[in-house]
Design a protein around this nucleic acid. Sequence first.
DNA 1: GCCTGGCACTCTGCGAAGGGGAGTGCCAAA
DNA 2: TTTGGCACTCCCCTTCGCAGAGTGCCAGGC
Lengths: 338, 338
Amino acid sequence: MLGERRLEVLRAIVQDYVGTHEPVGSKALTERHHLRVSPATVRNDMAALEEDGYIAQPHTSAGRIPTDKGYRLFVDKLADVKPLSPPERRAIQNFLGGAVDLDDVVGRTVRLLAQLTQQVAVVQYPSLTRSTVRHVELLSLAPARLMLVLITDTGRVEQRLIDCPTPISEATLADLRARLNSKVVGERFNDVPGLVQDLPESFDADDRGTVSAVVATLLETLVEETEERLMIGGTANLTRFGPDFPLTIRPVLEALEEHVVLLKLLGEATDSGMTVRIGHENAHEGLSSTSVVSVGYGSGDEAVAKLGVVGPTRMDYPGTMGAVRAVARYVGQILAES
Amino acid sequence: MLGERRLEVLRAIVQDYVGTHEPVGSKALTERHHLRVSPATVRNDMAALEEDGYIAQPHTSAGRIPTDKGYRLFVDKLADVKPLSPPERRAIQNFLGGAVDLDDVVGRTVRLLAQLTQQVAVVQYPSLTRSTVRHVELLSLAPARLMLVLITDTGRVEQRLIDCPTPISEATLADLRARLNSKVVGERFNDVPGLVQDLPESFDADDRGTVSAVVATLLETLVEETEERLMIGGTANLTRFGPDFPLTIRPVLEALEEHVVLLKLLGEATDSGMTVRIGHENAHEGLSSTSVVSVGYGSGDEAVAKLGVVGPTRMDYPGTMGAVRAVARYVGQILAES
DNA sequence: GCCTGGCACTCTGCGAAGGGGAGTGCCAAA
DNA sequence: TTTGGCACTCCCCTTCGCAGAGTGCCAGGC
């Protein structure tokens, strides 16, 4: 359909526009890229590209800018992920390696990604549902008041207060704690319900209510806290959007504050491999002039969460994708080590 | 020094400028505020106010706008904190009351404050140093690997991994756990070091190394985690700064991302009562065209942390102060209940 | 059939020019 | 001390005109 040279022209347009942020004309194209043809020929190609919806003119007799469809083609067919340089890789490793706990890992990742891409970075905390249980702790705070602490293999800690129907002895509590842990430690969250549901039956009638309450709270924590958290950074980079951005930046800031929206956005991305959503491909309309590059990361083979960046559609896709992929890889390593 | 009417004129200028965001002239002043004098008289007063540095003209023969010094006088002498309406109070209570845990309380508070003031809200997590210990838990993860979990009365949980020099038996661990808790539960963080420092001596020589490691980690957690966290919201309100804000908004966004800066900012505020820092009174230069209204909040009589808002110097001070104070009060109540 | 050079046309962006408006400062009088 | 009057200043907005860049189309060449 599209000739080889036309694709080349589109690639050149995207690259130039990303660099200059100004509509690019036929003459400038032939000068900067050594296409072996004249401006007039390029004009013909541009007309065809515009006809097919890959580029557009902001105003008659101005240069062309890529459309969402044009960027899509560029990303799918014309762009290679640009690997980071060895020094950059080392810097990433050093910076992430200094993290002391999970919060710190996520915090550093966000700052790193924002810094590397000069865009807004979004990092999801490792998801509970895909994590496994490292430990469950039960503390007696008062005669009829317990605290349940759940520790995941990714270092996340969740706590819940439990009001017991009847007081429970320390001995029974220790027993419960031991049996609970022997059942669930190392198991994935999804599998926990089936493993603990018959636990109350094996206790004395007196304690059964309390044990049930504990089990119920545990399951509740697993479900409710699937509500996933995320961290955002680099919002100052939004000012790079352009001179027209007062109206552009506002809906983006609003969207970024709605973590639910962002989580959904990340969730929609394919599980493995990198996902690029361009402009109107994003469901949320506040993000219709932005692109989202996201990828899963995890401590093992499997992704436990996602991270990505949000930037203007006119972003440097190869560079951004390279940075996102590299950061995800190293975060995975760090998580695996801890 | 300043006559009564001149103060009245200053107040009128501030109020008008806050409302219109445009330099205010003598004629408009006499029309909107029923000052019983003519524009010419007001002009004389304005000249005097300008002489003293309370107001300034952006350009010759334009209206006047308040200076930082003018706002300062307004806040100190001319403005009353504007109480919220009963419906607003009820809404606050309902909204905050729905919180399920500490994260949720802080999150809701930030959103609420941003919504009420239409500005950027900053809420500090309850500080560890002023909190008391609710429980310390020790978990054996591996033969020579422990996890220390610290739970505060404000619901915060911190965890740390400990590598033991020598393995420790479950019995000894239980003993240590019990003695540790009996010493520190209910105590303020600041007092903990003195209470636990002689703990290692009372154990067998074999275990002393491990106990020392545990104590050291606990103390480290207390100190390091004095690093306080905070949450920010309402950054989309930055777009209200004005049409000239591309250059204004960027340093503010940058400052907001440096939590360390913000914590310092909040920390500088007086412990009790409300603090208003106007324009250049803020140490950080990115915030030199913003004002920060902050106040402490706490579960009891004493403040455990601070919250506040960051907005343009031309903000509605009475309304903002009223909202900040009210929110702080209700957050305190919520924390006291839980 | 595709590429190329030439040419007329369109539209934006920028700077100069001009008028309206708002506001000030000063002065003289009440 | 306040007030009305008046001349002056400066900003802002609109208009105008022009240069520049880019396009579309056409006719000719490979």
